[in-house]
Design a protein around this nucleic acid. Structure first.
Lengths: 200, 200
DNA sequence: GGATGGAATTGACCGTGGTCAATATCTAAT
DNA sequence: ATTAGATATTGACCACGGTCAATTCCATCC
């Protein structure tokens, strides 16, 4: 009973403040974009003091984590509604919303990478949660005779994540960004998901 | 002729200052580690003003880039002296110095990832150079009948880099760091480099 | 309707990376 | 030697994320 009592104490005010901060942050991102997001700006819009912000979020990145996590969740929603792809090009097409989002901005990409794994077991951030969800989708998609069967779908899914990150990272690189993302992904995923048949 | 004249002007002083800054930074890293590195500290040790630091390096990360680049270069030196591995476990063993270095600290890993691709064609940072070098080594190692031949060694090398990054990243993740790095790499690289033979 | 104690909020303050106009130093031409 | 012009250096200054002791707010109990 203590537990509930403890978590209940004075929550109304807190939740409202948190909501105001998030709303303010959304607006700020809308206008300035993620790279231009300043905590001062968020706080000003929310009408709170700076300290309040940091009472609600451990640091600025935690806010980004939250916002980006929501974005990605929306994208995964769409992806889950899609039929399981049966070929690699189909798979890539299905992946594109996610890939495009991650590739839109270097800052966002960095945050995603940094928070994609839980930093501590106790607190798994929103982005980390979306990565687990992503992982589940991939496993589902790859449990399909159209793709290789000699290794587990789990392993295939981890590989897809690895190649996806690699492709986006290389896309940010001036030396290697002449090739479009889907075209870069194709050879990776063909070789990973359907080895053997092709020759070169 | 202008070009040479321009690059030659007043270099002695500059080079000395730069050397002092780098030396100071090395010392600071030695004592405080990379995460504890402060530009103020570097500048104090070098006996220069803060502005001088930023006249020599565009930002702090460029200094880290330089230092880490040197570290990695040393590791690649060793790796190049090694005989080309003929099995996946051998390959992993050969990779371990590099993997261990990248996995030693989250800050270092982040910088490595962020700078592993050139941000602009004109200025390829030290870490980006080491990644090209790495790439060359991998291509050499993987041009070997012991590994799959149905795709190009280039593609294999890119895949190895992708899995290597993935393995280290997961190692920083509280949810997935119960498994040792070499053990995590093994299934990835077996499935990537020697597909087919195994089952299940 | 006080009194009490815990939780939320405040805002002055700090640390650190990065800037820039002013200054000092160097090179080369006369 | 002098001077002009370029280059290197300086350090006060700013921006921005993050801290914390003080204060306000609020539920609860008498």
């Amino acid at each position: 009973m203590q537990t509930e009592a403890m978590t209940k104490a004075t929550q109304a005010r807190t939740l409202k403040t948190r909501a105001r901060l998030l709303e303010a942050a959304r607006q700020a991102v809308e206008e300035q974009g993620y790279p231009g997001l300043r905590t001062e700006e968020v706080v000003k819009r929310a009408g709170t003091a700076k300290g309040t912000f940091f009472a609600h979020f451990p640091d600025k990145e935690a806010l980004l984590d939250h916002l980006i996590g929501e974005d990605i969740d929306g994208i995964l929603e769409e992806m889950e509604a899609l039929p399981a792809p049966k070929t690699v090009p189909d798979l890539i097409e299905s992946l594109m919303p996610l890939v495009t989002y991650m590739a839109q901005d270097r800052d966002i990409f960095d945050v995603i990478i940094r928070r994609s794994g839980a930093a501590a077991i106790e607190e798994i951030g929103p982005i980390a949660v979306t990565f687990e969800r992503q992982f589940g989708i991939f496993i589902h998609w790859l449990s399909n005779p159209a793709f290789r069967q000699d290794v587990s779908p789990d392993l295939l899914a981890e590989g897809v994540q690895a190649f996806l990150v690699q492709a986006v990272a290389l896309n940010f690189c001036a030396l290697h960004n002449t090739i479009a993302l889907p075209d870069r992904l194709l050879p990776y995923l063909e070789a990973w998901l359907i080895p053997g048949p092709q020759s070169s």
